[in-house]
């Protein structure tokens, strides 16, 4: 990575289908991945609902984009921070989230989980490390 690499954080705070924010965020992440920056995603508040297992939109006539999160590793987006307190407030735990893996190029392509559960205080620290924060 060159010196021009900046830390970009995409902050997701909305549930997936009630508004267009979640899908727009994901599309911007995929397009932005072409710029070779140090990208992380944060999921807090209702944003944690974006990652739940078992989404099936056939009945509401909308695209189910939850499988697309599993493609992020191909785009070198491998840090998905999920806030524990937000999960707990909503009666969820890490087990309710889909499994998202990436292959670590620097470790003989070992499969590793992209989702990292962090506390609210850790999330605040992550925000404070960023060069650019994009909110959705």
């Amino acid at each position: 990575m060159s010196e021009d690499v900046k830390k970009f954080l995409y902050v997701n705070r909305k549930a997936p289908y009630g508004t267009i924010y979640a899908l727009e965020s994901l599309e911007v992440v995929l397009i932005g991945a072409a710029f070779d920056q140090d990208v992380s995603l944060a999921f807090l508040d209702d944003g944690v609902f974006q990652l739940t297992r078992g989404q099936d939109t056939t009945g509401i006539g909308m695209k189910n984009f939850s499988p697309t999160f599993r493609a992020l590793g191909d785009y070198d987006v491998t840090k998905l921070y999920v806030e524990r307190e937000s999960l707990e407030e909503r009666g969820l735990s890490a087990d309710d989230l889909q499994e998202i893996m990436y292959e670590d190029e620097d470790d003989d392509w070992a499969e590793k989980p992209s989702i990292r559960i962090v506390s609210r205080a850790e999330m605040a620290d992550i925000f404070a490390e960023q060069d650019v924060v994009l909110s959705f």
Partner: peptide, 18 residues
């Protein structure tokens, strides 16, 4: 196959890498 699994068409560099 990629679209079936992930619901997106991959970017060119992702396609080439795969």
């Amino acid at each position: 196959d990629y679209y079936e699994e992930y619901q997106i068409a991959p970017a060119v560099r992702v396609l080439i890498k795969a």
